[in-house]
Amino acid sequence: MQNIVNRVAVLIVGMGFVFFGHYAVAGTPVIELTIKDHLFFPATIEIPANTKIKLLVINLDPTAEEFESYELNREKVILGNRKGVIFIGPLPPGEYPFFGEFYPKTAQGKVVVTDQ
C-alpha cells in the first residue's frame, strides 16, 4: 500500500516538474476585453482556431465582476478598477458565450473562434 502511495506521489511531483514552470508566454497573442457599466467591450471577440490567447480583462467599473464561461471552462473574479489575465484556447471553431457572473443580465459576450 505504502508503495502505491509513494508511486502516486512521485507521479504527481514528476508531472509538476514537467508541466509547471513557465510554459510559452512570449508568443501568446493578447486580446483586451473591457468591462464598463457591467457591459463587455467588445461583446464579441474573434480569435483564430487552435491558438492560445491571453485575454486581458480590464474592469473599469468600481464593482467587481466575475468573468465566467461554461463553454470555455473559465471563471475569474476581476476586482473593480483592476485587471486580470485569463488564458483561453487553443479552441476548435465555434461560438463560446461568456458572461459576468455578478451582473449576468447585462454583462454578456461571446468568443467566436473562426477557421482561417
Binding site: F19, F20, Y23, N73, E75, K76, F87, P90
Partner: peptide
C-alpha cells in the same frame, strides 16, 4: 492552473452540456 497557463492545454474529453447543462 490551466487558466493561469501554468499547466498546458489538454483536449476536451466529452461534452454533456446538452444532457445536463452546467
Amino acid at each position: 492552473l490551466t487558466q493561469a497557463d501554468w499547466l498546458p492545454y489538454s483536449r476536451i474529453l466529452w461534452d454533456t452540456s446538452s444532457w445536463l447543462p452546467e
